[in-house]
Amino acid sequence: MDVAAIDAIVSKFPEIKGNLIGILHEVQNHFHYLPEEELRYLSKKTDIPITQIYSIVNFYNRFSLKPKGKNEICVCLGTACHVKGAEKVMNALEENLHIQKGQSTEDMNFSLEEVRCIGACSLAPAVVINEETYGLVTPNKIPLLLSKHKDG
């Protein structure tokens, strides 16, 4: 268990109770998911019941209890993107990465998720990889997109 990482994250926040979601974001970014042991430690350290933390973690899509790949790919399947063929983009990604949505590649390089409307409808279909948004994505652009992030 990485106690030091949790300690370091928590110490960045002057106030704990109101910042739980912020803390969880940092933990998620650090580990690429929210490991159970670390969350239990966080609960003991902050005196926030683990059930409360677990509830919050379950509520938001952004948080994951399963390890995620280094590069997180989010395919928008919101209305606009759906109409513009996001399903095909998703399929192409699944084929290229040999995984299903919701899973991560074996080398933990990529994970694939679906999201709903990221507010880039005019660029539909949209895909977000890590912090970067790509618009007007077509299935044949997928290999290029992936190679850009392969070792990043």
């Binding site: 019941p49 059930t51 409360q52 677990y54 509830s55 379950n58 509520f59």
Partner: peptide
């Protein structure tokens, strides 16, 4: 005690 919680949506 808070042994129970809600999960999912």
């Amino acid at each position: 005690v808070q042994a129970l919680c809600w999960v999912n949506r």
